[in-house]
Amino acid sequence: MEVLGIILAGVLINNFVFMQYLGLCPFLGVSKDLNMATGMSGAVIFVITVASTVTAALEQYVLKPLELEYLRTIVYILVIASFVQLVEIFMKKTLPGLYQALGIYLPLITTNCAVLGAAMLNVTKSYGVVLSTLSGFAGAVGWSLAIIIFAGIRERWKLMDIPATLDGFPLALISTGLMSLAFLGFSGLFANLVK
C-alpha cells in the first residue's frame, strides 16, 4: 500500500510542478509543442529515475557510513551532472532528431531542479534505495503529465491573438495557476497512505 501511496503522491497529490514548484523552467520553456514536451518527458523520467537510485545508494552506502552528509549537495550535483552528460552523448548519437529539437534544454536537465529536488525529497523522507527510485519515477511521471497537459493547451494558443503584454511568461504562469487549482482537488487524497 505504501507503493500505491508513493505513486499517487508523485503523480497527482504532490505534483512536482503544481504543488512543489519543481522543474518550472523547462515546464514553462519546452511546453509550446506537444511532441517536444513528450520527448522532454521521456528524458526527464529516465534521468530522474536513475538519479534517484544512484543518489539514494550513495546516501545509504557512502555518505551515511562515513558521516559525510554535509557534503550531500556537492556529491549529488556532481553525480547528476555527469550522468546527464552521458545521456546527452547517448542521445546525440542515437536520436539526433530529438536532440536537435530539444536544443539547449537537454544540458539544462542538469539545472532542472526537479532532478536534484527529487533526490533531496527522498532524503527528507528517508526512503531507501527501492522506494527512492519509485518516488523519483512517480514524481517524474507527474512532471511529464503536467507538461503534456500544458503543451496540449498551448498548442491551441497558436490560433489565438494574445496581446504582447501577456504573451509568454505572464500567460503561462496564470495558466499554471489555473491548472494547479484543479490539482488542489487531489490534496488529502488517501491521507492514510500518503506521506
Binding site: 497537459i149 484543479a182 490539482f183 488529502g188
Partner: peptide, 24 residues
C-alpha cells in the same frame, strides 16, 4: 475525491481536471 479525498465534494475539481485534458 468524495470517498477517499480531502474534500467532501469533488465535482469542481473533476470537471476542471477534465477541462485540462480536453485538448489531449
Amino acid at each position: 475525491i468524495r470517498l477517499w479525498g480531502g474534500y467532501p465534494e469533488g465535482v469542481t475539481y473533476a470537471i476542471l481536471f477534465m477541462n485540462l485534458v480536453t485538448p489531449l
